[in-house]
Write a protein that binds this DNA or RNA. Structure first.
Lengths: 163, 163
DNA sequence: TATTGTTATACTCTATAACTATA
DNA sequence: TATAGTTATAGAGTATAACAATA
């Protein structure tokens, strides 16, 4: 159990982390939004996925997922076909163009990070990955915090799932 | 130096980290936006700060900083007085109300994190703080990354090392 | 001319609510 | 009734550019 000043410092790091994410965003190919990148990445890992499951993995509302997917479908990166087993659902998979785009994104990302983290060891990168994955798990595992509820409105937001 | 798959996994964790930040945001007092929290926190640490320096610490554009500060000034949490040494500048410091608000935020944050991270050791929290601080430093230190080659062939080659 | 700071505008991401279609 | 998905709307964060005032 950590102490209060440590928690405050952790939150400060969370806040400042936005600058890192924004630089990664600026590194993306033109016409390729961050939302599309997240969607392409997850579908690249788990093909033939449905919207509901994708929203769970993204840990955002399905309405948000729908918009990101539509953006990628409009550009020919994702194929959104009906699910024969459940006519409400739609099956998502990458098109060849989507795979190319995903490859380009991965290439750019690797290039940027290999510059920025050139003095990081393999083990240090691995530690950061593990700690951030565990952080996410810690926020997912627990329910609402007792004293400060104030947020129990009905929501279509899905629980956080670790991938 | 890490490998490509590790970088991709790191970026995946960055993406999913948004869910953690959103929950922290939902934990804030009403009428208290995330931008104000960041501003209050930094002014609480370094009083009598100027806009320019604050924007640097926040790692956002000064126009963004100006809006966040205005939000807090409007609510009486920050005092924005002219700098006698340079009439272009303005000096920022917390009001007593701002200190109270900052205290309340810290209290809520500690409460949330002590629940969520109840099974984290002091050392583990410290490791995450250090790694995230170093991550930020790694992105700060370097200038813009050299121009990306238009299209690199898919490859598992060793990433380019910059000295 | 350069710097400090503000404001206007536009873009991205997100959640909520209302809706359709199907189970 | 409940669930899968879409769309409309609003709120928050950010960057760029134009601007004013001062150095």
């Amino acid at each position: 159990m950590a102490e209060r000043t440590q928690y405050e410092e952790l939150v400060r790091q969370f806040s400042a982390f936005g600058a890192v994410k924004r630089e990664l965003g600026r590194n993306l190919p033109p016409d390729c939004l961050g939302g599309s990148v997240a969607v392409l990445t997850l579908i690249g890992r788990q093909s033939n996925i449905r919207m509901r499951r994708l929203a769970e993995l993204l840990a955002v509302d399905m309405s948000v997922t729908s918009r990101h997917v539509t953006h990628a479908v409009d550009r020919g990166w994702i194929e959104r076909s009906p699910d024969p087993a459940d006519k409400r659902s739609r099956i998502l998979r990458l098109t060849p163009e989507g795979q190319e785009r995903l490859e380009e994104i991965a290439e750019r990302t690797t290039q940027l990070l290999s510059h920025r983290l050139s003095d990081w060891s393999d083990d240090e990168v691995g530690q950061l990955i593990l700690l951030m994955a565990r952080l996410r798990a810690s926020f997912d595992d627990h329910g609402p915090v007792p004293v400060q509820p104030a947020r129990s409105a009905p929501s279509t937001r899905t629980p956080l799932i670790i991938t």
